[in-house]
Design a protein around this nucleic acid. Structure first.
Lengths: 233, 233
DNA sequence: GTCATCCAAGTGTCAGACGATTGGCGGCGT
DNA sequence: ACGCCGCCAATCGTCTGACACTTGGATGAC
């Protein structure tokens, strides 16, 4: 009840959404109706709607069949949100490279085992496609492929939350070190690790995948911290 | 370049913030200046600002010294965001109780060890305060204390990201089962586990804390899944 | 020197108008 | 009868102008 009217309105609508009173896909009253119902101007209503929209709680379209519709945030939405937040926390030095990598260890090492156990054949195919050849040009595309490999592996665990919280971690690291010069042999080492992981997941060797992932992340940690030290001088 | 003007403007400002061009604490141009700079009306500017504000990228205050200031999202901000997102994903049945608990295992079990190693004396004191007595009234306060205990433990690891991503997990579970009837002896069992964890952390017994946390989460998993089955009938 | 008052710079809110987009409905020609 | 085209209504998107509210400093009286 306190604060600006747009915040009050946004809070009221958010409560209706998270409580399930407004079901996903359902259409909210149009802006004039909300304006009348809450006794505020349409600008105020619109500011509240923009708040909800930027949290992916609603989606607004135009036209005669348009309006604001309740939408369930997707893994990609939450992930993108976390990424910007973590990027800023990292830039503000409230989070270190070591802490980011330590979380990757916690999540990705067991995830490799899960993926080896639960993967489907299509997912294995996706994993193969996400490998890359370090002999060809190393650049933006290589970084993207590197990320994709880990992403596909996480997705193969069947737990969407793993992707939500882990993807931001390596995207933050990638954008932070994307422009720095990687040590010699770094990319071919990464490619070898990925190939080994692919084979182990293909063979459904969960223990092997866990071990390989742990070693892979150790390699990455070393490289990143080396780059980190260089960039601080 | 595409889409509504408020989205374009929000994107442009967000880019300035994440790139560091606008430093944390720095003040944005006021609404009239932004309006002039981007050639849009003030309403449009305000809608863009509300978008950024609801992502905790800026903070707006009134008065002569007011305006919009770049702000670094805190752990609590990101955590709250993740919580609403996960709540909706859980309600939409895209995430199961088992998946939530499985993530808690991945994160909290090693975290207990870290906390036992790194905790300070004040954090140990906080942990003690977060214990509760199941003999007294069991209600909202008990749930809050239960959450606090885990929160304090996570904080004692020294890695703020652990709190960011784990807190939403148990908050989602707690609000989901907060109104259900817990099995007899559930709360006293929880209290016993917490007391044991406290003692192990006090003794800096990392291995013991890891084992105790694993067992504690197994207890919780059993109880939650039992409640889940009941609530589905 | 202290306190009350006024003032300036911002954001907060409203009302009204018009443009842009979308999808359906009806008319028109064949 | 069928299909195409253009009109139309609903809704969001945007602009303008105005005024209220909040805040902190400046001003002035005592």
């Amino acid at each position: 009840m306190t604060g600006p009217a747009y915040a009050v309105l946004a809070g009221a609508l958010r409560a209706r959404i998270v409580s399930g009173e407004l079901a996903p896909g359902e259409r909210l009253p149009n802006e004039q109706e909300l304006s009348a119902e809450f006794g505020v101007g349409r600008s105020t209503v619109r500011e509240a709607l923009r708040s909800l929209a930027s949290q992916d709680l609603i989606q607004t379209t135009r036209g005669v069949s348009g309006g604001s519709f309740v939408s369930v945030p997707t893994a990609a939405h939450l992930s993108a949100h976390l990424e910007t937040g973590m990027t800023l926390m990292a830039a503000a030095e409230r989070v270190t490279v070591g802490q980011l990598m330590s979380l990757r260890h916690l999540l990705e090492v067991p995830a490799a085992g899960e993926a080896a156990r639960h993967r489907t054949d299509e997912q294995l195919e996706d994993l193969r496609r996400a490998e890359f050849d370090p002999a060809v040009a190393v650049g933006e595309a290589t970084y993207a492929a590197n990320q994709d490999f880990h992403l596909v592996l996480l997705r193969a665990t069947g737990n969407p939350l793993l992707e939500v919280i882990t993807a931001p971690l390596f995207r933050v690291l990638a954008t932070r070190f994307g422009r720095d010069h990687a040590p010699d042999g770094f990319w071919s080492c990464v490619a070898d690790d990925h190939a080994e992981l692919h084979d182990l997941v293909a063979a459904r060797d969960a223990d092997g995948a866990v071990t390989a992932m742990r070693r892979h992340l150790d390699h990455l940690t070393g490289a990143y911290q080396q780059m980190d030290r260089l960039s601080r001088n």
